[in-house]
Design a protein around this nucleic acid. Sequence first.
RNA 1: GACCCGUUGGUCAAGUUGGUUAAGACACCAGCCUUUCACGCUGGUAACGUGGGUCCGAAUCCCGCACGGGUCACCA
Length: 501
Amino acid sequence: MDKKVRVRYAPSPTGFLHIGNAQSALFNYLFAKHFGGTMVLRIEDTDLARNVEHGEESQMKYLHWLGIDWDEGPDKPNPKYAPYHQTERNKKGIYKKYIDQLISEGKAYYDYATEDELQQMREEQKKNGEAPHYDGRWYHASEEDIAAAKAKGIKPSVRFHLPKNHTYEWNDWALGKVEFNSDNLGGDFIIEKNNGMPTYNFAVVVDDHLMEITDTLRGADHIANTPKQMAIYEALGWEHPHFCHISLIFNPATGKKLSKRDKNTLQFISEYHREGYLKEAIFNFIAFLGWSPKGEQEIYSKEALIKAYDPHRMSKSPAFFDQKKLDWINAQYIKKTDVNDLVDRIMVLIHEQETEIAKKLNGLGYSDDQMKDVILRTVHVHQHDVNKLTEIMEHAYFYATVLDHDMDYSGLKDFDHDDTLKVLQGLKDAVKDQPDDTDPQTYLNLIKQVGKDVAVKGRNLYFPLNITFYGHSSAPQINEIMAIYHPATIVKLLDKAIAAL
RNA sequence: GACCCGUUGGUCAAGUUGGUUAAGACACCAGCCUUUCACGCUGGUAACGUGGGUCCGAAUCCCGCACGGGUCACCA
């Protein structure tokens, strides 16, 4: 790289951060960090009507949560490039200057066509089997026509005049060589709306140039925009950045681009957070959506990804969203995350109360310390067998409310009545005077001792205990589950089981 | 419809200059471990859309076809 790398993630605040946004932000981040460059956050808010309240704030919040931090942006302005909102840049006349320049050079012109008129034009073209395109009707407009339109009070938009039969070609990091003919671009396109706002294709060029962006990484849905933008770079006499089109994320169920309407897939990063996915897992997973490293390793920390990142390895074909793989990656991260760290993260989820299970746990009325205690004990048992933090929460809720559950004791009948009674009775005697913080090892010793005393072992010893304390003959290490409960609870569970014998 | 892009096992995905026993992961199955479940470990099944070329040799290059997708806004 001869120039200092500068990249940008440029969301429009028309919604909350979804997987596709995060993917785009993430690759820009990896690119910047890998090459020791600068990541810029720019807000493309030129569509006044579609801007969503709190959209920007929420996007920034979840970008930070994921660990995608930018070096420059609305909250970290560099005076040389600020401001970072396109609406503010428009107020400063940044776009107007270049619009005027293009008009005076005859490369852009006013268009007085109304939206209805344009709509009608496109429909007719479609009917005739033509590709919808602007026919250039105002390019050669006469003085009279213009005067008449002005007299009617029509506010014009500004169109960029596309050269005829001109080839635009670029070398894409992901795609390699791509070329378009200017005749297939849909005709002259609008660069300034009649409300004075620049359109995306124009603003993005001006801003990327002024902000000295060296590499533009964006979704593959922008491929067809690229030649239009190149036309503007050319008209303004600027060099265009190196482009990279990130493969789109597909829904395996529909075979189409992940859509906000796909109910079976979580769309928003906030949803992954509240469902108990770790940010490290999401980061790792998304990095593999449209890119892959050289070796066989699947689990990569952020730092490792930054190091391994190579834009040449961006893939061309669509990236399919593999939910099971995500769950597996999340499970890997849960396994290797420190127990207390997991407890803290779960406490955050409980406090946020954004899921049913979080609300249920909250409804227990526990103090923070009590809650942490239950969660910690549960994490010890389940850290290695869950995919999501919410599953640990479900388990914790079960243990916290175990006495309220109707246990299925029918399985007890599969074992010798007298032996089982002796085991349960013996364990009750052994447990009733144990302190609250009795550890799993002690409980294991107690179980073994009771087994020895009454001469019962193996599954005849353990299965009834599984049923008694867990409700199923198959359970995790039953002594560990006992350590979650308080001895008084254990005694009550034993009483219930004995009564059911 | 036009223009671009893509097509490797059930799923995801390596295979940058043509020569590989065509990686790896998830899922699945089996065995081991375990009181059981899960975890873990070991092993296994399984793939180059199609038809033509070029070449000693094609998953890799060329052409056609099929299928899938993206884009054709005063949205970004």
